[in-house]
């Protein structure tokens, strides 16, 4: 018992500080991916419900590809593929220099494209749940396209899309575990290092699982609060 506590303490013999740093990396990666994925997902949803056929088709190709590939493979494709591509372009201008893609950025892009392709479906079904009359009402009182979107449609859209988006956030949080494979020091990687050094694999991977659970619980509390906040303008039943 005492040994366990020493192992988990913050300090020279303990692994507490290393694992805390891992939590920080996991959370910041997820938080950095979220706005990227949300913005891209929203744009793709707009494209999917456009009247223009080619735009719809282009958006559907995007979702088909990134929902069909395993997340791990997407990560490798981005990490190695972009690295190769950038190196080739750089070699054209200044041969001999080597460029390394930041693992954090690669993880952000890979998780972002996956997140955005799922988020676009959530946004699309939320768009479909908003009656046409809402747009027509907006136009009738003289609002422009953009104003109707911002003042009339978006506030309702957020409310409808929120449960789906909170699911996607939890999936994103779990998917960040994959970046440990390309060398980013997240929870899993730090726990793995600690496990290898101390030979207490069950303890450290168990703690990693518990940490993910804690993050999930915190997220659901936060989403509960956001849902109440967006629901405050909902008509009373």
């Amino acid at each position: 018992m005492e040994r366990t506590l020493t192992l988990l303490s913050f300090g020279a013999e303990g692994w507490g500080d290393e694992i805390a740093a891992g939590v920080l990396v996991t959370v910041s990666l997820a938080l950095a991916t979220l706005p990227l994925g949300l913005a891209a997902g929203f744009m793709i949803a707009l494209a999917k419900q456009s009247e223009e056929r080619s735009l719809r088709l282009a958006a559907n190709v995007y979702t088909t590809i990134f929902r069909g590939l395993p997340e791990l493979l997407t990560l490798f494709l981005v990490f190695y593929g972009v690295q190769l591509g950038v190196q080739r372009v750089v070699a054209l201008f200044s041969p001999g220099t080597s460029i390394e893609i930041n693992a954090f950025v690669a993880g952000m892009v890979a998780l972002g494209v996956v997140f955005s392709s799922y988020a676009s479906e959530v946004f699309l079904s939320a768009f479909r749940a908003i009656p046409r009359g809402q747009y027509e009402g907006g136009y009738a009182i003289g609002l422009s396209n953009w104003q109707t979107m911002r003042l009339v449609v978006l506030p309702q859209l957020v409310r409808i899309a929120l449960p789906g988006l909170s699911n996607l956030w939890l999936i994103l949080l779990k998917d960040t575990a994959l970046v440990s494979v390309i060398g980013l020091s997240d929870i899993i990687r730090q726990a793995g290092i600690a496990a290898r050094v101390t030979k207490e694999a069950f303890l450290f991977f168990g703690i990693a699982c518990v940490l993910y659970l804690v993050l999930a619980i915190i997220s659901s509390i936060a989403f509960g609060a956001i849902e109440r906040w967006t629901g405050r303008s909902e008509p009373a039943r």
């Binding site: 994959l178 726990a191 168990g206 699982c209």
Partner: peptide, 11 residues
């Protein structure tokens, strides 16, 4: 459902 599959597999 709350922990990554990767963490479960490692565990």
């Amino acid at each position: 459902r709350g922990t990554p599959l990767l963490a479960q597999t490692f565990l």
